[in-house]
Amino acid sequence: MADNADHIDGDDNEDVRAQQNLIKIKLKSSEGGIYECGLTAAKMSDLVKNMVESLGTDAVVTTEPIILGNEAVTDAALKKIIEWVEFHWDDPPVDHDFEDEKDRRNEELSHWDKQFIDVDDQALLFDVIAAANYMDIKGLVEVGAKHICSKIRGKSCQEVREMLKITNDFTAEEEDAIHKENAWIYAKD
C-alpha cells in the first residue's frame, strides 16, 4: 500500500503541505554528514523535489539519504540550508496584483533573512550560495545575492576587493584601459 504522502503529492493545500512537512527525509552532504529535513521544506529545492518525484516519497523516506555531491554542499552549508527551508516552506506566495510589492520584496531582505545570511565566515556564505544554486533553491540564492549586493553597493573597487578578500590580478596597463573606457564611473578609485 502506498504511503499517504504519495496520494497528496502535488497538492498545494496548506494543511496538506503542513502534514507533508512532518515526514522527514535525510540529506547527505558532500562531506558525508546526514541531516533530517521536513519533506515540504526539502522540496523547496527543485533538485530534491525532482528526486523525490522520480523515486517516490516512500523510497526517499525509508531508504538511503539523498546524496548532494557538489563540493559546496559542506556540512555547515547544508545545515544552514535546512535552517532556511524549514523557516520558509510555508511563506505565502507573492500577490501578483501588487507589482510594486514584488519590487519591494526584490529590494529588501526580511529581518530574519538578514540575520540568517549575515555570517562572519565568508567561505560559508559562498558555499551556501553555490550549494543553494546547485540544489536549485531560488529564494535562498536570491537572499545570498542580495546580501552580497548590499555589501558591494557604493564601494570603490579597492573596498570591494578588501571586503571580499580577493586580489587585483590586472596589470597596470590592463587596469588603465578599463579605467579609460568608463572613467567617470571610477571617481572614487
Binding site: 549586493c149 573597487c157 570591494v160 590580478d169 590586472f170 578599463i178 564611473i185 571610477y186
Partner: peptide, 10 residues
C-alpha cells in the same frame, strides 16, 4: 555598480 566592478579583478 556593475560597471564599476569591472575593475575589481579579471
Amino acid at each position: 555598480d556593475v560597471f564599476l566592478c569591472r575593475k575589481v579583478n579579471k
